[in-house]
């Protein structure tokens, strides 16, 4: 791959049932590109966690995936409420998810730390009242 490939998806914040569609699609694209399964799995889990977060915490957003010679970059951008205390949000078990989210199988406060664990680089840029952009990179 000499130049980079870019994929872009709109993540619908109104529909919990469709959350994760972008991640499923990316997984298919990466398989077709012949990327190593272990790399695909890391990208899939990190992106899916982030996509679910955009739906349950931020009312949706845009997911962008860039594939180049060095690895895969995932950029998740929303215009939700933002994260007031990023350090706290990164702690395992910290969650502001309401009970209805928990009854859907999420809201254990494991997503952000898991995204960090599965990626080589992760950066959260968030402003309260403006939105959140999370950039992650998985190297080959």
């Amino acid at each position: 791959m000499s130049d980079s490939l870019n994929f872009s998806y709109t993540v619908d914040g109104e529909n919990f049932a469709s959350a994760g569609q972008a991640s499923v699609q990316v997984k298919k694209e990466l398989r077709q590109l012949g990327i190593a399964p272990e790399t695909i799995r890391r990208v899939s889990i990190a992106m899916y966690e982030g996509e679910i977060n955009m739906v349950i915490h931020a009312g949706g957003g845009v997911a962008q995936v860039n594939v180049d010679d060095s690895g895969i970059e995932i950029v998740l951008k929303d215009e939700g409420p933002g994260i007031a205390n990023i350090e706290q949000a990164m702690q395992e078990g910290f969650s502001t998810a309401p009970d209805n989210v928990r009854s859907l199988g999420f809201g254990a406060g494991m997503g952000l730390p898991n995204m960090k664990r599965y990626t080589d680089e992760m950066h959260i840029d968030s402003t309260v009242g403006v939105g959140t952009t999370i950039t992650m990179k998985v190297n080959y």
């Binding site: 049932a17 899939s44 899916y48 859907l104 199988g105």
Partner: peptide
């Protein structure tokens, strides 16, 4: 648990 996310989670985890 019964929703579409069960299947997507399973898919993400291979």
């Amino acid at each position: 648990l019964m929703n579409t996310q069960v299947i997507r989670t399973a898919e993400m985890m291979d």
